[in-house]
């Protein structure tokens, strides 16, 4: 669907994207994650042909980007705006028309979408009459109105309240179910981690980690289980898979042996008493990001290391 091969983009004084490669298979929601300034937006801009890479090759749908290909892609840039004086319906139709839609089709779909995002009745209002969040919904609608096969969303939820964020997430999942490939780029890793099937973590223009979200989570899941258990904790500790049990009243923190399956331990615990809560200690994407960067000896911007759940 999208393949980026050894792409490099240099600006005066720094390298924004450094020998970066990526392949995105069709029909997934793909997360392009990393802190501000990691090179996400530059990568996307190169993919959309807005800027040219200094080195490397980018192909979409198996061919280099061309004008006709652009009509099969939807792009919500990070730097986005609307013509302030234009009427909302006219604006959506204009953006749809330059994606190759006829004005009639565009008007029909625009009506449906405005209803979907709770903006029915605003058709003839000028853009400037809308709040920022509302404008953002218009931009989102304009990005997908031509029913693209691939959408690239750069920080799609920035500035949205939780309700509207959920609305957009629902639409994104629907699109994926209909076969659209969605590429989500954001620095808010936690916000999208439940949405993405595959992710790529970027830092300083280089790939840190890539793969299926579940695999990555598994790989980085800590071997610690926290549980509420009424039974004999010492008996649990005797189990060969268990290395150590720390007791906090009924709450236990169980450290498993290297490579042990938490499921086996759970079954064992259920034999010996009641389990009210069982949670495998999962590392957040942000922690995984930091751990991986550190492990590779890479540099980390101070604020990323500190900010935790930024």
């Amino acid at each position: 669907m999208l393949s980026i091969e050894n792409v490099t983009k240099r600006y005066e004084g720094h390298t924004a994207v450094d020998d970066f490669s990526l392949t995105i298979e069709p029909g997934v929601i793909y997360g392009l994650l990393g802190p501000n300034g990691a090179g996400k937006t530059t990568t996307i801009r190169m993919a959309m042909g807005i800027i040219q890479p200094d080195e490397g090759k980018i192909e979409i749908f198996g061919e280099p980007l061309s004008e006709s290909l652009k009509e099969r892609i939807g792009y919500l840039p990070e730097e986005r705006g609307l013509y302030r004086k234009m009427k909302i319906l006219d604006h959506i139709i204009f953006l749809a028309e330059i994606k190759g839609l006829s004005s009639k089709t565009a008007a029909e779909r625009a009506g449906r979408w405005l209803e979907r995002v709770d903006l029915a009745g605003w058709e003839d209002k000028p853009v400037e009459a809308l709040s920022k969040g509302m404008q953002q919904k218009i931009q989102f609608v304009s990005t997908i109105i031509h029913e693209p096969q691939m959408v690239i969303l750069d920080e799609p939820f920035a500035g949205l309240d939780p309700i509207n964020t959920q609305l957009l997430k629902d639409i994104i999942v629907e699109m994926k179910d209909e076969g659209c490939t969605v590429i989500l780029s954001t620095h808010l890793m936690e916000q999208v981690e439940k949405l993405c099937e595959r992710i790529c973590l970027i830092n300083r223009g280089r790939k840190v980690l890539e793969g299926g979200l579940a695999d990555i989570k598994m790989r980085f899941s800590k071997n610690v289980v926290s549980m509420r258990f009424s039974g004999d904790a010492r008996e649990l500790e005797a189990h060969p898979d268990v290395e150590k049990v720390s007791e906090f009243g009924q709450d236990l923190s169980v450290t498993l042996a290297e490579g042990a399956d938490p499921g086996v331990m759970l079954r064992h615990a259920l034999d010996g008493g009641r389990v009210d809560r069982f949670e495998i200690g999962e590392m957040s994407l942000h922690d995984i990001f930091i751990a991986q960067v550190r492990e590779e000896g890479g540099e980390l911007d101070e604020e990323d290391a500190d900010s935790g759940q930024a």
């Binding site: 807005i50 004008e67 919500l76 840039p77 730097e79 986005r80 994606k99």
Partner: peptide, 13 residues
């Protein structure tokens, strides 16, 4: 200044 440009450039030359 209105930042529409990038949206437009993703559709046309």
């Amino acid at each position: 200044n209105n930042r529409v440009i990038e949206v437009l450039l993703s559709s046309l030359r």
